[in-house]
Amino acid sequence: MRTILPLAITFVTGMIMVLNFFVPHRPFNSMGNSLSDWYMIVASAAIFLGAMNLLQVHFARIRHRARNWQYSPVAIGGFLLMLTAGLVTGVEEGRAFDFMFQNMVVPMGATMFSLLAFFVASAAFRAFRSSNWRATLLLVSAFVVMLGRVPIGDLLWRLVPGAASGAHPSLVTEIAEWIMQVPNMAGQRAVMIGAALGVVATSLRMIFGVERSYLGGAD
């Protein structure tokens, strides 16, 4: 029962969504729309699960005096601060929640992601050491696209005698644009089509109960 019932739920819900697409009439369309709404609600419960898990992990770190446990109260405090501000004052503009989001969460998020610029660049330098001509091609493609996205690319090109007055004064930008529009698009489409076929196959395996690892085991 612990396996059969979840598999039956997966089959029924999956088939309703597929039938809703091919037969967009009653009763499938109304069932499909309801399921979409329910999906959103149940999936949002996973956010709560994640938040509670975060609290559990940090409380356990404090209890066991794990490495760097001193910072766990900061994570718990930050969580409770946002939660309390949101629940007590609401989320409208100008409220405490919005103030903390705009002045703390947004700058921290932007800084975290901008830090990746340094690490991606240094990691790439190590990873892309041109071991063969295809790796070199990858490196050159990345370099041209990066150069084409900033004004200095064309400025450097215009230092070449006759380039500024020639037919292509913005050659670096044009090459970068061409790489994005032609070979990049071809590669991305191949990946996308391949991945889409994979998604279709995996979805069918899940709906028909062949793939059941999401239930937490092979039973």
Binding site: L7, L35, A196, S203, Y214
Partner: peptide, 30 residues
């Protein structure tokens, strides 16, 4: 497991048709 089954089933049914449409057929057409 029941909640997970509902999410997986609905998600699989939804992504099956939408991914096939947008990431496979539309890309082939383009």
């Amino acid at each position: 497991r029941f909640a997970l089954a509902m999410i997986v089933g609905t998600g699989a049914g939804l992504s099956l048709v939408t991914t096939l449409q947008t990431n496979a057929l539309a890309q082939v057409e383009g």
